[in-house]
Design a protein around this nucleic acid. Structure first.
Lengths: 251, 251
DNA sequence: ACCTGAACACCGTTCAAGT
DNA sequence: ACCTGAACACCGTTCAAGT
């Protein structure tokens, strides 16, 4: 004579997270292209129907993973944002937090990229898409904030032919291009080239910032050693995790 | 009593191309994620078995499409390479040929990106992968050549901490990041942002080149109007195609 | 009210049977 | 020698039947 077992919201959230985590483990093991709902169901103590109560389809599950991934990246961005240093140094740290994230969580990084495909967005629930937009806005907040400070303290002059949004996009797309094209290096499965992603990201960030005349210029400051010290200070546990992975940053 | 019909190599090539073209049309219509071998077979006057004689699987077919796409892009790069202008202007043209290509052939552009996935390479034939590597080397030749000239005629000084390969990669990844992140704009299906891909590519190219101190600097030369004139001269038919698509470049 | 898993439509790949 | 398409294993999604 127990009362009907009404599921509270917390239990539902808990179950949803369990499904998401199982899926992430499967992506880590087999790659995102080999993820199937059957395999997810097999890893979880619920049936297919229950999984489909949480996610309207496979793509909706992928977007849920991507949203979790963005939250994680946001935390790293925040740490870079509050670093005590000049604005240019802090933006470099943001770029490197993105790199560290891509190396530590390749499955999440890849899922984020895949979740951008029109296919995935087209098959996901409206709420989950809305959540993604909010999370991305928050993520961009760190980049936006640093540029605002830089312009306020005159270390950077906004180019007359650009606005804030374009400035943010320039930084973002540079880091994105570098990291995603070298993600085979990131995952240590290529080795064909002489390119080292952390060195290229360092160079290209500085070329962009120098192009903007963002003070202090590379010739005046901002050497690898300084970046290394800052990274150790801002991301101690992440740097430790990299070491455990046998993937120390090489400059 | 006809002799056994031995297929010559030309006929096989012809048939292979027919399959590839049918697949491209299907990708254009339904998106790459909805391409199936069944649909390809339905578009073509041969059976499943015959299609699988040409391609060891779906991924092999995708890589074949990607290789065709790289050949097409190479032609555009070559036209930019032989333009009569300063080296910096020619590199800007190379970047813009990549953009024009992405707008005119979104299906090919997308297939090229997908073909980079470890999944696709893992399931393709060795010959087709080798062909891809050769085509990419040839493609990079234009970028490499322009940098060589620029350094030879002193309009560019190689940064002491970079080599030729890194320079090429920096250019490539910047254009890649910008164009691929804005490919939703390219395909005119978003419109959420104020970013215009041709303007951002122009800005970011110039920021990178200015960061390299590549002469003449933006403040001295290289305005939108000059680029427009050069594009009309080098890519007249492509610009015409853009117009027909209702997608003129906006600066 | 909630969960289950058989059932269905579809997809990639193979290969025995044909010509 | 070459081609065909039925057949198989697998995947995403649904929903009638259970508790």
């Amino acid at each position: 004579m127990t009362p009907p077992k009404l599921l509270d919201e917390a239990a539902l959230k808990e179950r949803e997270l369990q499904i998401i985590n199982s899926a992430v483990l499967l992506i880590q093991k087999n790659g995102i292209e080999n993820l199937t709902m059957d395999k997810v169901v097999a890893q979880v103590p619920f049936s297919k129907g229950t999984v489909y109560k949480h996610f309207i389809g496979k793509e909706d599950l992928l977007l849920a993973i991507s949203n979790l991934a963005i939250k994680l990246l946001s935390e790293l961005f925040s740490k870079a944002f509050i670093f005590q240093g000049c604005t240019r140094e802090r933006m470099l740290l943001v770029n490197f937090s993105y790199l560290i994230y891509a190396i530590l969580h390749p499955a999440l990084f890849q899922t984020c990229i895949c979740a951008k495909a029109p296919n995935v967005l087209g098959k996901s629930s409206a709420e989950r898409i809305q959540e993604q937009e909010q999370l991305e806005t928050k993520l961009m907040g760190a980049i936006f904030g640093i540029f605002e400070e830089a312009i306020a303290n005159k270390s950077l002059v906004m180019p007359e032919y650009m606005d804030m949004q374009q400035l943010c996009f320039a930084t973002w797309s540079m880091a994105y291009g570098t990291i995603s094209l070298l993600s085979s290096e990131v995952e240590q499965c290529s080795g064909r080239t002489n390119l080292v992603v952390e060195r290229e990201l360092f160079n290209q960030s500085n070329l962009l910032f120098d192009g903007l005349q963002w003070q202090p210029l590379t010739k005046d400051k901002m050497h690898c050693s300084e970046l290394k010290v800052a990274l150790e200070q801002v991301f101690p546990s992440e740097i430790q995790q990299l070491k455990e992975k046998g993937r120390e940053l090489k400059f």
